[in-house]
Amino acid sequence: MKIAVTTEKDVICGHFGHAKNFTVFTVAGGEIISKYELNPEGNHCSSMPEFIKENDIDVVITAGMGQGAVDSLKEKGIKSFSGAEGNPEEAVQKYIDGRLGDAGANCIGHAFEHENEDGKVCKH
C-alpha cells in the first residue's frame, strides 16, 4: 500500500490541490517499509486526483482538501484524510493503527491559513 502525505519542510501542510510535495510511504504488514518524495510536476486541483492514481497511491493524508478532491479521489478508489498536522510519519502510523481522524472537505477556498502544532504557518 502507498500513502501520500502533503508535506512542506517535513511537516504535513497545504491544500491537497496545490501541494508542492508529497512524501510517499510504502506500507506492508502494518509497517512502514520505505518512503520517497514525489513532486506533483505542475498538477493542481483538477488534475491532482489523476496524478495520484497514476502513481498507484491508495491513501492521501493532508491538512486541507475541498469537496471536489474528496469526491474525485473516492471515485478513483483512493481514500483521503484531511485535517492532519505535524509529523507525516506519525500520521501514517495513526492510519495504520486505525486512529487517524478525517475532517472531510475542510476547505472552501484557497485562502485558509493557520499555525500548526510546530508553530509553522500553514497555508491552504
Rank of each mutant, 00 (worst) to 15 (best):
M1L: 04
K2I: 00
A4N: 07
T7R: 13
T7F: 04
V11Q: 13
I12G: 01
C13F: 08
H15Y: 02
H15F: 02
H15A: 01
F16W: 04
F16A: 02
N21P: 00
T23G: 03
F25M: 04
F25T: 00
V27K: 11
G30K: 12
G30Y: 12
I32C: 12
I33V: 14
S34N: 14
P40W: 12
E41A: 13
S46N: 13
M48T: 11
E50R: 15
E50F: 07
I52Q: 15
E54K: 15
N55V: 02
I57V: 11
D58T: 12
V60Q: 10
I61Y: 12
A63L: 01
G64H: 04
G64L: 08
M65T: 01
Q67N: 08
A69M: 06
A69N: 08
V70H: 08
V70C: 10
D71C: 03
S72V: 00
L73D: 06
K74M: 00
E75Q: 14
G77L: 06
G77Y: 11
K79Y: 09
F81I: 01
F81K: 04
G83F: 07
G83R: 13
G86P: 05
N87P: 02
N87H: 11
P88I: 02
P88H: 12
E90M: 11
A91I: 00
A91G: 03
V92C: 11
Q93S: 02
Y95A: 03
I96Y: 10
D97F: 05
G98Q: 14
R99A: 12
R99K: 15
L100F: 08
G101P: 01
D102W: 02
G104S: 02
G104Q: 06
N106V: 00
C107R: 14
C107A: 06
C107H: 10
G109W: 09
H110N: 13
A111P: 00
F112A: 07
N116H: 06
N116Q: 08
E117Q: 13
D118T: 03
G119A: 08
K120Y: 05
V121S: 13
C122E: 14
H124G: 09
H124Q: 05
